[in-house]
C-alpha cells in the first residue's frame, strides 16, 4: 500500500485526523518511558522537574549496593543461560518440525506453545510447587530451567518463520552434491537461518529479562533478579535507585532493538525467497 491507497479511501480531513492520532499515539507509547529515564540522572532525590543538575549519583548508589549488584548479576546469569538452552531446544524443534511435516504437527505446536498461553502466575506457582518437592526451589538451576521453558516457544516461532522462507531445494542440492544431512545443516541451513536464530535468542533473552512473576516465586533472596528487586522496591515509586536500574534495563532494550534491526537488514533469505518456487 502506498499513500495513494489512502487517498482513494479517505478524505483529506480524515487523513489529517489519522495523522494527528498517529503522532499522539506515538507520544503515548514512548512518552512515559522517555519521561521516566532522565529522572535517574537527577541530582535531587525527589521527583523534580526541570532537572537542574545532572548527576550519576543514583548509578553509583546502585553499583555500591550489594543487593542491587547481586540482582544485576543474577539477571545477566539467568537470562544468558536460559537463552542458550532455549535457543538450542528451539532451533532443533523448529528444524525437526520443518523437515518432518508430521501428521500431529498442530498438536505438537499446541504443546510447545503452552508456556506462552498459560498465565505466568499459574506457571510460576506450578513450577514452584514441583521444584519445592524435590528441594530445588530457591536455586539458580530451577530459575534457569523455568525461564528456558518460558522462552523456548518464541525461539520455535521465530525460527519456524525463517524456515518457512527457506528453500528446501537447497538441502536437496547439498545432498546431490554429496553433503550428509548434518553437514548440509551446518553449511547451508544454519548460515541462512542465522538471523532468525539470533532474533529468536534476543526475544528469549528479553522474555527472561522481563519476567517478574516466575522469579518472584522461584527465586530466593540470593537469586533475586533485577525486575524482582524493582518489584520489591515498587512500594516506593520515587526511589531513584529503582529509576537508575530501570534506565539500565531501558538501555538493554535499545541495544536489543538496534541488534534486531541490524539482523533484519542482514537477512540473506530475503532475495532468495523471491526466486524460490513454492515447492519444497
Amino acid at each position: 500500500m502506498t499513500q495513494r491507497a489512502m487517498t482513494s479511501a479517505l478524505s483529506l480531513a480524515n487523513r489529517a485526523a489519522l495523522g494527528i492520532f498517529g503522532v499522539m499515539f506515538c507520544i503515548y507509547l514512548l512518552g512515559p518511558i522517555l519521561a521516566f529515564i532522565p529522572m535517574s540522572f537527577n541530582d535531587v532525590a525527589l521527583l523534580h522537574y526541570p532537572i537542574e543538575r545532572f548527576s550519576l549519583r543514583w548509578y553509583s548508589n546502585l553499583v555500591a549496593s550489594s543487593e542491587w549488584r547481586l540482582a544485576l548479576l543474577n539477571s545477566v546469569v539467568v537470562a544468558t543461560s536460559a537463552t542458550v538452552l532455549a535457543t538450542i531446544l528451539g532451533v532443533c524443534a523448529a528444524f525437526g518440525l520443518w523437515r518432518g511435516r508430521f501428521r500431529g504437527h498442530s498438536i505438537i505446536m499446541v504443546v510447545i506453545m503452552t508456556p506462552m498461553i498459560v498465565p505466568s502466575v499459574i506457571g510460576a506457582i506450578s513450577m514452584y510447587f514441583s521444584f519445592a518437592e524435590i528441594g530445588m526451589d530457591y536455586t539458580y538451576s530451577a530459575l534457569i530451567l523455568a525461564h528456558t521453558a518460558m522462552a523456548a516457544p518464541i525461539v520455535v516461532v521465530t525460527v519456524s518463520a525463517v524456515l518457512a522462507r527457506f528453500d528446501g531445494n537447497l538441502l536437496r542440492a547439498a545432498a546431490s552434491l554429496g553433503a550428509d544431512p548434518l553437514l548440509a545443516f551446518r553449511k547451508v541451513t544454519l548460515p541462512l537461518i542465522m538471523p532468525g536464530v539470533v532474533s529468536g535468542a534476543v526475544f528469549a533473552f528479553a522474555i527472561s529479562l522481563d519476567d517478574v512473576v516466575v522469579a518472584l516465586f522461584l527465586a530466593g533472596p540470593d537469586q533475586r533478579t533485577l525486575p524482582v528487586q524493582m518489584y520489591m522496591r515498587s512500594t516506593d515509586l520515587f526511589d531513584l535507585a529503582t529509576a537508575a536500574a530501570a534506565a539500565m534495563m531501558f538501555i538493554v532494550a535499545v541495544a536489543m532493538m538496534i541488534f534486531l534491526e541490524l539482523l533484519r537488514r542482514r537477512d540473506r533469505l530475503a532475495p532468495v525467497a523471491k526466486a524460490a518456487d513454492s515447492r519444497r
Binding site: D167, N169, L170, R172, A173, A174, A175, S176, L177, G178, A179, D180, P181, A184, K187, V188, P191, L192, R268, L269, P271, V272, A275, A276, D277, R279
Partner: peptide, 20 residues
C-alpha cells in the same frame, strides 16, 4: 541409497545456489 551418496549431479528449476 541416500541422495548424498549417489554421485549424481542435479540442476534445479530455481538453481538452488547457496545464497550465502
Amino acid at each position: 541409497l541416500p541422495a548424498h551418496k549417489r554421485d549424481i549431479g542435479v540442476v534445479f528449476q530455481n538453481y538452488a545456489l547457496f545464497p550465502h
